[in-house]
Amino acid sequence: MMNQFNTPLLVEKLRNVLPKERDFIALHEPVFRGNEWEYVKECIDTSWVSSVGKYVDLFEEKLAEYTGVKKAVAVVNGTAALHVSLKLVGVEQGDEVLIPALTFIATANAVVYTGAVPHFVDSEHKTLGLDPRKLRDYLSEISEMKNGFCVNKKTGRRIKAVVPMHTFGHPVNLDLLTELCAEYNIELVEDAAESLGSYYKGIHTGNVGKISALSFNGNKVITTGGGGAILTNDEELGKLAKHITTTAKVPHKWEFNHDMVAFNYRMPNINAALGCAQLEKLPDYLDKKRALTNVYIEELEGFNGISVFKEPEFAKSNYWLNALVLDDGFEQYRDEILTETNNNGIMTRPAWTLMHQLPMFKDNPKMELHVAESLQNKLINIPSSVFLGDHYE
Rank of each mutant, 00 (worst) to 15 (best):
L130T: 05
E124A: 05
K71G: 07
V84H: 05
V76S: 15
L102Y: 12
L102H: 12
Q93L: 14
D137E: 10
K87M: 12
L88S: 03
T103W: 03
V112Y: 05
A110Y: 03
D122I: 00
K87Q: 12
F104W: 06
F120G: 03
P118V: 07
T107S: 03
K71V: 14
A116T: 01
D137G: 15
A74G: 14
H83I: 11
I142F: 00
G129C: 11
T67N: 10
H125M: 13
E92I: 07
G68F: 03
K87P: 07
G129S: 09
I99V: 14
V91M: 11
T127Q: 00
S140Y: 10
V89T: 05
T114R: 15
N109Y: 11
V73Q: 06
P100I: 05
Y138T: 10
H125G: 10
V75A: 07
S123I: 08
Y66I: 15
A110F: 08
S123V: 13
D122C: 04
K134Q: 08
T67Q: 13
V69M: 08
G115D: 06
L82Q: 08
K126D: 01
D137W: 04
I142P: 02
L128Q: 03
L135N: 06
D131R: 04
T67E: 09
A81E: 02
E92T: 13
G78D: 07
N77Y: 05
S140V: 12
A110D: 04
L88Q: 04
T103S: 15
T114Y: 13
A106N: 09
K87H: 13
H119G: 07
G129A: 09
D137H: 12
K87S: 06
R136V: 12
G90F: 08
F104E: 09
G129F: 06
T114C: 13
L98P: 00
T103Q: 14
L98M: 04
K134G: 08
R136C: 09
A81T: 03
G129I: 01
L82T: 07
L82Y: 02
G94V: 08
I99F: 02
V111G: 05
I99K: 01
R136D: 14
A72T: 11
A110S: 14
S140W: 06
H83P: 14
G94M: 02
E96L: 11
D137M: 12
S85N: 02
A110G: 09
K70I: 09
D131T: 08
G90T: 04
K71Q: 08
H119F: 15
E65Y: 12
L130G: 02
V75C: 08
F120T: 03
H83C: 13
H125P: 06
